[in-house]
Each structure stands twice: as C-alpha cells, then as structure tokens.
C-alpha cells in the first residue's frame, strides 16, 4: 500500500546549521504517528517542511491523495492546505481578536470560492456558500466540543479550549493529514484525557494524525508507531515498546551511559 506521505531523504540547512539530515520515513493512512525527540532535535523544522513554511534543502516529499502521488516539496503553505495537509502550532496562533466561529470560518477559505463581485452582489450562490460555511464550521466546533462558545471571542477561551479551537480550525480545511505540534502542552490531566478521545475521533473521521509531543505517557498510549529524531537525524522508528528500549533513544534523552545503567 502506498503511504499517505513519503518523506524521502529530507535535509534542511539554515546557513551553517544542518537542522535536518537525510531524514526518511513514511506516514501511513489511518495511523497516529508520533514524532519525538529531545528539544532542538528538528521536530518542528520537519513539520514546517511538510506544511510548506520551509522549503527542504534536499530530498523529496511525496503526498498521495485519491490514488495520485504528487511531489510536494517547496509548495506554499496555502497549497499544502489545499492538498489536504493541515497543522496546529506549538505556540497557539489563533486570530484572537475574532470570534471562535470566525476562526473556523476562515479555515473554510480553501474549500470555498466566492470572490469580490459575488460578495458585493450577494448572489444566490454566495448566500448558499455562506450558509454552508457556517454549518460546516459549527459541525467542526461541535466535533471538538466548542459549539456553545461559537460567538465568544477566541481570546476569552481557556488555554485548553484554545488548543481545541486550533484543532477545529485545522480540521475545517478538510485535511487528509493533520499535523499536531505539542497539542497537550500546558494542559491539565483532564484536558489531556479529552484530547486523547478527540484524537481518536479525528482518526475515525478519516484523518491521519502526526504529532509532536513531549508527554511520553500520552505518546506511548496513543501512537502505534513512533519516529525519533535527535540532532536532525532519525535515530529510531517503530512501536512504542521497541523505541522505549532502544539504547540510542535512551542515550538521546538521558545522556551517554544511561543505557547501561
């Protein structure tokens, strides 16, 4: 079976710094893939390459949708979103002056088409589309459990709710692959439990998930497969148990000698 996303020998260089060196792995449709590693390992750089924020220095990204494989490296973020790769950010980036609903409505941008003339004339098409945008947005807000806050300001939400709103916004672009950058950061245990349920629900909705997370308990619980980066290179790949016992991984997290202790 062809993987949903094939990451083939990706390197990313910032001047003299090699942030990623020849990293290759696959994302398979319908899985939750965990991307872990110590701070500064290049996890977010990897996400930014996949999401189109950075252009990889070398290597290939191949995305498969509807049986068609496309080489996607170097495309702009909005093109990636259109293709079906959505993301959330490590430090929350909501449109905080706007309402919760507007945040999600903006995400419908890439799936709608009304232009200046249609908006000014309010054609039948535009009105139908606006209605569809509100309905779809409400569907995704209810999906993450924020429906009743729809008309509140995004900045008035609690931290955990803001994280979930970011997920709703990403889902509203109708992705095939969702990249979550530390979704559980700063959440309390109850919110983290809700997040686990939410991620499973996302998977059931037919969206594959790739996530960066430092909460190892969470990662080991929900990911069937893990990829470990350290200093920009891939050091291990496999199930949670294998990875946990891998001496190289233990060394990366705890330092040299820890594996023998």
């Amino acid at each position: 079976m062809t993987p949903l996303l094939e990451i083939d020998g990706i390197s990313k260089r910032f001047g003299g710094l090699l942030a990623l060196t020849d990293v290759s792995f696959n994302v398979i449709e319908g899985e939750i893939l965990g991307l872990i590693g110590p701070n500064g390992a290049g996890k977010t750089t990897m996400f930014n390459c996949i999401a189109g924020v950075y252009k990889p220095t070398s290597g290939n990204l191949v995305f498969t949708r509807d049986e068609k494989s496309l080489r996607i490296n170097g495309r702009k973020p909005e093109k990636m979103t259109e293709l079906g790769i959505a993301r959330t950010f490590q430090n929350i980036r909501l449109f905080s002056a706007l309402t919760v609903l507007d945040n999600v409505r903006i995400a419908r941008h890439c799936r709608t088409t009304s232009n200046f003339f249609r908006s000014v004339l309010r054609t039948r098409f535009q009105r139908a589309e606006e209605k569809e945008i509100v309905d779809a947005s409400m569907r995704w807000l209810d999906f993450v459990g924020l429906g009743h806050h729809a008309l509140a300001d995004a900045s008035s939400l609690s931290y955990g709710d803001q994280r979930r709103l970011e997920i709703a916004r990403a889902l509203a672009t109708e992705p095939k692959l969702l990249l979550l950058d530390e979704p559980a950061a700063g959440m309390n245990p109850r919110e983290t439990r809700m997040l686990v349920d939410l991620i499973h629900a996302i998977l059931d909705a037919g969206v594959s998930v790739m996530l960066i997370e430092h909460d190892m308990k969470l990662v080991m619980k929900i990911c069937k497969r893990l990829v470990v980066l350290d200093h920009g290179t891939l050091i291990a790949e496999g199930g949670p148990k294998e990875v946990r016992e891998n001496p190289q991984v233990i060394e990366a997290y705890l330092g040299r000698g820890a594996a023998h202790a």
């Binding site: 999401a51 924020v53 702009k76 973020p77 909005e78 990636m80 979103t81 259109e82 959505a86 993301r87 950010f89 980036r93 909501l94 449109f95 905080s96 002056a97 706007l98 507007d102 409505r105 903006i106 995400a107 419908r108 941008h109 890439c110 799936r111 709608t112 009304s114 232009n115 200046f116 908006s119 535009q126 589309e129 606006e130 945008i133 916004r169 990403a170 672009t173």
Partner: peptide
Amino acid sequence: SRLGRAWYAIREDPLAAASCGVNI
C-alpha cells in the same frame, strides 16, 4: 464575506492565515 475574513486573518496572523489556505 469570505474576502473580508481573509483580510482579517492576514491582519491577525499571516502564518496562521496561510495555513488556513489564504494566499497572502
């Protein structure tokens, strides 16, 4: 409208706007 919302998104956060599919 869709147009106005795209503008607000750019004003609030260009990177997040791009990742919502707005061609900045």
